[in-house]
Design a protein around this nucleic acid. Structure first.
Length: 286
DNA sequence: TTTCTGACA
DNA sequence: TGTCAGAA
């Protein structure tokens, strides 16, 4: 196929085609007169590029999407969702500004949004794909409050801590497994699941009593060989080891508790809930 | 910086 | 066709 055919099929321009070629997406062979001859494969890739572009993905994101044949597309969907949420919040602040709201309040609100963005970026960097987004969804509800003076310091330290973390890497198979597993979850789902979890921890006694049956079924599953040999368990163990190796529980968690009152409250409740759970099971609390 | 566009040879 | 300056 010649350039004109491709342009007609994909709707991309000549310059765009050259650009994607330079970036190594396609490798059209050259005819004697120097014209490009595009293969079916090239056309297929360019069609996908055109589609992803319409969905608002950047070239880097498109590259990743193509590499894994769409399994990672949901990662970018969730990222876009988060970006849109952020924009929505900025718009709300803009409205406040137009209404003549106090500048200090405006700045405070913007700082909260920036803090959220900055944690999202760093979690995604340290924990690529689904895991980072999951971690973020877990923390996001606690990032909505303005920082106090010493909270600011703790926040900075937490950011530095995240920057110093190496990337948590899974094998290709594990990555694929988790991408596939999570491909139907959007950001809202993750957030909803977390809110349910927070609510359960807040009223752990009530929740525990109301869900006794489910809990015992889940307990049995956790003790089954099915679970113990599953890739999920393996990945969870790796993550746990990674976090322990990098002193996440000793360094990062206390920092978060310092800059987020609501997280601190949640943390205490979680500890109580876990003691309660162990007591109910008949074991001594650890 | 990224992702092209338009002019020109 | 490729190159280059530059726009958004």
């Amino acid at each position: 196929m010649l350039r004109n055919d491709i342009q007609r099929i994909t709707g991309l321009t000549r310059k765009a085609l050259e650009y994607y070629e330079e970036k190594g997406f396609i490798h059209p062979r050259r005819l004697e007169n120097g014209y490009r001859e595009y293969s079916e494969k090239d056309a297929e890739i360019l069609n996908k590029i055109a589609l992803f572009k319409k969905l608002g993905l950047t070239i880097t994101e498109i590259k990743d999407c193509l590499k894994t044949d769409g399994a990672t597309a949901s990662i970018f969907l969730r990222r876009k969702e988060q970006e849109l949420e952020s924009d929505k919040k900025r718009k709300a602040v803009f409205d406040l500004y137009i209404k003549g709201e106090d500048t200090d309040l405006i700045n405070e609100k913007l700082t909260v949004i920036e803090a959220e963005d900055s944690i999202y970026k760093r979690l995604e960097r340290a924990f690529p794909g689904y895991l980072g987004q999951c971690l973020f969804a877990a923390y996001q509800p606690f990032l909505q409050e303005p920082l106090s003076k010493d909270g600011e310091e703790a926040f900075e330290k937490y950011i530095q801590y995240l920057d110093s973390l190496p990337t948590f890497e899974l094998s290709r198979e594990e990555q694929y497994y988790i991408d596939e597993l999570s491909s139907s979850f959007n950001m809202q789902t993750l957030k909803d699941v977390n809110e349910a979890k927070i609510a359960a921890v807040e009223n752990y006694e009530k929740w525990h009593n109301e869900n006794k049956d489910t809990i015992s079924i889940y307990d049995r599953y956790l003790n089954s060989d099915d679970y113990k040999t599953s890739p999920m368990k393996n990945i969870q163990d790796q993550l746990k080891t990674f976090l322990m190796d990098h002193h996440y529980y000793e360094v990062a968690i206390p920092l978060i508790r310092q800059f987020s009152k609501s997280y601190d409250h949640y943390y205490k409740k979680l500890t109580e809930a876990s003691d309660y759970y162990l007591k109910q099971k008949g074991d001594a609390p650890q």
